[in-house]
């Protein structure tokens, strides 16, 4: 057991304490019912609240819509850029890095100053998909880029063409299947990012899951703790999905 050396074990034990204690404490706290009584009442309150499910459903819908936006708007553009316009790569790289330089809160400030209508756009929660797309852009771009680089797109396309396939067939039959891992990875990362997003929704006054946790935390501390534990487990489930489907390739892109 001392193959890591004394230093290695010290570091890992300290890390385990730092990361483990808040989780255990939060889980314990979520079971507290005042005084020295413990029980599941916080979880019962949550499950009885229709708001929880409404907000969760909204967050899931938004996450899926964002994934769709990534697949429709970003993925084809990246494939075609690699095939027909590799000179545009620096521009794409710049655009993908831009959300990193423009913090979410600044983007939301700019957006609300610039876009003041029409009501059918900014009045619906799906307006959030626009900023969410940019929130996910750096992660999704990186994951897809890693995937595209690993498959040598021009050669695959030439091979497909020499066998008589049209461009549509090549993309459908050759390119997308070989990008499967990258797409699954970027999809789950997008889901995780969007699901926990608070900034845009809070400022633009939409009732997503994260906003709901914040609200409930103002007056129901144990319920908030219960939701935090649940969120951690949900994120874990999503990440395990990435690890299993992507066979450990999550290390890139996130």
């Amino acid at each position: 057991m001392n193959r890591l050396g004394f230093g290695g074990w010290t570091i890992l034990v300290l890390a385990a304490v730092f990361f483990g204690v808040p989780l255990v404490m939060t889980a314990a706290f979520s079971l507290w019912e005042g005084g020295d009584r413990y029980g599941w009442s916080a979880y019962r309150i949550l499950l009885a609240s229709p708001q929880l499910f409404n907000s969760m459903a909204l967050s899931i819908e938004l996450a899926l819509a964002t994934v769709a936006a990534v697949l429709v708007l970003l993925l084809p553009a990246m494939i075609f850029m690699n095939l027909y316009a590799p000179r545009l790569r620096p521009l794409f790289e710049f655009v993908a890095a831009l959300p990193f330089v423009v913090p979410a809160i600044a983007l939301v400030a700019g957006l609300s100053a610039l876009v003041t209508g029409p009501e059918w756009l900014i009045g619906t929660p799906f307006y959030l998909v626009i900023p969410y797309f940019f929130l996910a852009l750096p992660y999704a771009y990186r994951a897809i880029d890693v995937g595209l680089r690993s498959i040598d797109l021009p050669t695959l396309t030439e091979a497909g063409q020499s066998l008589g396939a049209g461009m549509g067939q090549i993309i459908h039959l050759v390119v997308l299947p070989s990008l499967r891992t990258a797409l699954v990875g970027s999809t789950l990362l997008t889901l995780a990012v969007v699901f926990g997003e608070f900034t845009f929704a809070n400022v633009l006054l939409f009732h997503t899951y994260a906003v709901y946790i914040n609200e409930i935390g103002q007056h129901e501390a144990t319920a908030a703790a219960a939701l935090s534990v649940a969120s951690f487990l949900l994120t874990w489930a999503a990440m395990l999905g990435v690890l299993l489907v992507g066979r450990g390739r999550i290390t890139e892109g996130s």
Binding site: F198, I213, A224, S228
Partner: peptide, 13 residues
């Protein structure tokens, strides 16, 4: 990825 509101509440608890 465990940032934001849930993390804050975990630490408050």
């Amino acid at each position: 990825n465990f940032a934001g509101v849930p993390l804050a509440f975990a630490f408050i608890a």
